[in-house]
């Protein structure tokens, strides 16, 4: 009965979606209605008014920085809720998720790969204003390198590398850092999270240290996301 209801709902949803699709603007249309004055402002040539070459980074850390602060809060709350649910593992069927592996091939490859991943992650975080990526992508990579270490060497050894308390402090500290950079804009007489308007130096176009507040916020987000991913997996696999 449930299966039948699911299939019926699926057919209705498919009919509605595909019927709507036939009326949508075609894929790749250069004059699509989504390309309007707002897109043109975001796609200002050169370093523009933000000092940032990557237009996506411009949006998330400058034009819509407040939105990203909310996004970081959602990530924080979501993971905090997960950690609260997982604390106190008392059930009868408690599972041990990461006991580690004794395989020498796996361990050696991990030893080689983890530093390379971390160097690349540092590059992606610090060059978010110049090339694809940025704080979120690089932070996830940095966190993933720790997750790889955790699953190969086991939760106990991973906990010695990064204690959960330290991870939580880094995560909270990075969130505070974001707000402090935003308040810096207020301090310099502009609005909260203002960048060039607050007098943050835009720097030379294309230089590593350019973009003002965008670079600082990207750094904070990278550290925060890495700590969040590492923390989440420490708690998903931990016993306490």
């Amino acid at each position: 009965m449930r299966q039948l209801g699911a299939t019926a709902l699926l057919v209705v949803a498919a009919a509605v979606l595909f019927a709507t699709l036939a009326e949508a603007p075609p894929f790749g249309w250069q004059e699509a209605p989504t390309r309007n004055v707002i897109t043109d402002r975001y796609l200002a040539p050169g370093a523009g008014e933000t000092g940032v070459l990557n237009a996506v980074t411009r949006i998330i850390f400058d034009y819509r920085s407040y939105d990203t602060l909310g996004e970081a809060t959602v990530l924080f709350v979501g993971v905090a809720a997960a950690v609260v649910v997982l604390s106190g593992r008392t059930g009868r069927f408690a599972v041990r998720l990461a006991g580690g592996s004794d395989d020498p091939v796996l361990q050696t490859v991990t030893r080689v790969v983890v530093p390379l991943v971390q160097v690349f992650a540092a590059y992606v975080i610090t060059h978010g204003h110049l090339s694809p990526g940025g704080g979120f992508a690089g932070g996830t990579m940095l966190g993933a390198s720790f997750v790889l270490y955790l699953f190969v060497f086991g939760a106990d050894r991973a906990r010695r590398k990064l204690r959960p308390e330290t991870g939580e402090m880094v995560e909270g500290g990075a969130a505070v850092w974001y707000v402090l950079v935003g308040l810096g804009g207020v301090l310099m007489g502009a609005s909260f999270l203002a960048n060039a308007a607050a007098g943050f130096p835009r720097g030379v176009e294309g230089a590593l240290l350019s973009g003002g507040a965008v670079w600082l916020i990207g750094l904070g987000i990278g550290v925060k996301v890495a700590a969040t991913v590492a923390n989440l997996f420490l708690h998903l696999t931990g016993e306490d």
Partner: peptide, 23 residues
């Protein structure tokens, strides 16, 4: 670039909800 920025937000929300649901 606007939709890419919005997808970034969406991915973060997806990660949060997935983490909570899995826990």
């Amino acid at each position: 670039p606007l939709v890419s920025a919005i997808v970034l937000t969406g991915i973060v929300i997806a990660v949060s909800t997935t983490a909570y649901t899995l826990s």
